Amino acid sequence: MSASPRPLRIGMIGCGNISAQYLASFPSLPDVELVAVADLDASRAEAVASEHEGVRALSVDELIADPDVDTVLNLTIPASHAEVDRRAIAAGKNVYAEKPFAVETADGAAVLEAARAAGVLVGSAPDTVLGTGTQTARAAIDEGLIGAPIAATATMLTPGHERWHPNPDFYYVPGGGPLLDMGPYYVHALVTLLGPVDAVVGAASRTRSERTIGSGPRAGEVIPVSTDTHVSGILVHSSGVLSTLVMSFDAVATSIHPIEIHGSAGSLAVPDPNRFDGDVALHRLGGEGWETLPVSAGYVDASRGIGLQDMALRGADLRASGALGQHALEVMNAVLASSRSGSRVEVASSCERPQAVPLTDVKG
């Protein structure tokens, strides 16, 4: 399927916390139109529809079958991503899934195979990598400002999402945890910056068996933990670059840059990949310190949903692709498998390093 000659007509399934960010973005995306919403809690879908002109509240089945919806935005919980995607694909819809692409690697692969057979498009969050932060760093690497890339670090430390999220249960079951929840931002960024991954070595731990909800109507409720909450991994990129990944729901804070790329001629500080923008800093070999680079690439003032805009403009060449999401999923699951086996794990899938985004203002 090629780029759409008209706006992608979006049906959004899932009206939870993350949906608010997409809803705020849609008015600024000229080639994307939200036409319908659905949620297992019908009242949430009805509330969204009542606040957005031209948007209808439907059941999940109705939305997937609706002829006015050509693309399903899947904002369900991670455990439902692959199932909802397959149902939408079977109905002839494009799909764009929130991260992670799926929980099990085989389920994500099945989504891609179904999409190939049906001739529809598949996209995957996070699309933060399309913003000016990651893309300016990508341009610096491509221009040779750090010489030959050698190594990278990607670090995310937080005491846990239960402190602020009113319903954090899914963060502490398989498919959640710091790696599958926050790791996609970092792995998508590392692949965008340095290319695909061939193999990994991982280690993981779980320091607590319970968590206490800290906000909302369930504040004080204790929930069980059934997934690892501190994960470290070494990623061996096809290029030979070694990336070190640390994702934690157990630690308190860190003072290092979220991502650092180290090369033969310099080091690059990359902003938080959970954001679309942020300063990129370069420390040159023989230089006197960090210098902030001017913004030189990426979608300007981007926000959640820019991946859908990119899908509408580029069709099968979309950058936040299902292939990238699936590769990142396999990399993360390989890290977890390695942590259990104590052995290096090869990554079977690969993907093209997504094409760079030139400095682009979608608002004109």
Rank of each mutant, 00 (worst) to 15 (best):
L8T: 03
G14R: 07
A20Q: 14
L23I: 10
V35M: 06
R44F: 04
E46R: 14
A47L: 10
A49G: 09
G54F: 08
R56D: 13
R56W: 06
A57Y: 02
A57P: 01
A65R: 13
A65V: 05
D68A: 14
D68V: 12
V69K: 04
T76M: 12
H81I: 04
D85E: 12
R86A: 04
Y96E: 00
V103C: 07
T105S: 11
T105W: 00
A115N: 02
S124D: 01
V129F: 11
G131E: 06
T134Q: 12
Q135V: 04
R138W: 09
A140P: 10
A151D: 13
H161G: 02
W164G: 10
P166T: 09
P168L: 09
F170Q: 11
F170S: 13
Y172D: 03
Y172V: 06
L180G: 02
P184D: 05
L194F: 02
V197N: 01
S215L: 10
G220A: 09
T227R: 01
T229A: 07
H230G: 12
L242S: 12
T244H: 14
T244Y: 12
M247C: 06
F249Y: 15
D250T: 11
A253M: 14
S255T: 14
H257W: 13
H262Q: 15
L268R: 05
R284L: 12
R284K: 13
E288L: 14
W290F: 13
E291T: 13
T292D: 09
T292V: 15
P294M: 08
D301W: 02
S303R: 13
I306M: 13
L324Y: 00
Q326V: 00
N333L: 05
V335Y: 03
S339C: 08
S341C: 10
S343M: 13
V345A: 01
V347N: 00
V347T: 00
V357W: 03
K363L: 13
G364E: 11
